[in-house]
Amino acid sequence: MATVNEQITDSVTQVNTKTLGDAPAMAMGSLFTATSQALSNAGLNSTTSQQHAGITMQAATVQGVNSLGAIGSAVLGRAAEAVVEKG
C-alpha cells in the first residue's frame, strides 16, 4: 500500500478544520441576512398600509363632504319648490 505524503494530509486536515470553523459564522451570516430582509419587508408593508389608509380616509372625507353638500342642495330645492307652489 502506498503512503500519502504528509504535506497532502496536513493540507487536507487544514482545509477540513477551516471549513468546520467557518460553518457557524456562515450560518449566522445567513440568519442575519434573512432576519434583516424580513424586517425590511415588514417596514415596507407597514408604510404601504399607512399610505393606503390615508388615501381611504381622504376618500371617505370627500364623500362625507359631498353628502353634506347634496343634502344642502336638496333642502334648497325643496324650499324653492315650496315657494314656487305657494307663489
Rank of each mutant, 00 (worst) to 15 (best):
M1V: 09
A2C: 06
T3D: 06
T3F: 03
V4C: 03
V4W: 00
V4P: 00
V4S: 01
N5M: 04
E6D: 09
E6K: 08
Q7E: 08
Q7N: 07
Q7V: 08
T9G: 01
T9A: 02
T9E: 03
D10W: 05
S11G: 13
S11H: 11
S11P: 00
V12P: 00
V12N: 02
V12L: 08
T13R: 06
T13K: 09
T13L: 03
Q14S: 12
Q14C: 06
V15S: 03
N16E: 05
N16S: 14
T17I: 11
K18Y: 11
T19G: 02
T19D: 07
T19E: 08
L20V: 10
L20Q: 13
G21L: 05
D22K: 05
P24L: 01
A25R: 04
A27C: 03
M28I: 10
G29H: 02
G29R: 01
L31M: 10
F32D: 09
T33V: 12
T33K: 12
T33Q: 11
A34K: 07
Q37W: 07
A38N: 09
A38D: 10
A38H: 07
L39T: 14
L39W: 12
L39F: 13
L39I: 10
S40F: 05
S40V: 05
S40Q: 13
N41K: 15
A42N: 10
G43S: 14
G43V: 05
L44P: 00
L44M: 15
N45R: 15
T47G: 04
T47W: 02
T48N: 09
S49Y: 10
S49H: 14
Q50T: 09
Q51A: 11
Q51H: 11
H52D: 05
A53I: 00
T56H: 01
Q58C: 03
A59Y: 01
A60K: 02
T61D: 07
T61L: 11
V62M: 05
V62C: 01
G64M: 04
V65W: 02
V65R: 11
V65T: 12
V65S: 10
S67K: 07
S67N: 15
G69S: 12
G69V: 04
A70R: 10
A70L: 15
I71D: 13
G72C: 13
S73A: 12
A74E: 10
A74K: 14
V75L: 08
V75P: 00
G77W: 01
A80C: 15
A80G: 05
E81K: 11
A82W: 03
V83G: 02
V83R: 07
V83T: 07
V84Q: 11
V84E: 07
E85S: 04
K86V: 11
K86F: 12
G87M: 08
G87A: 15
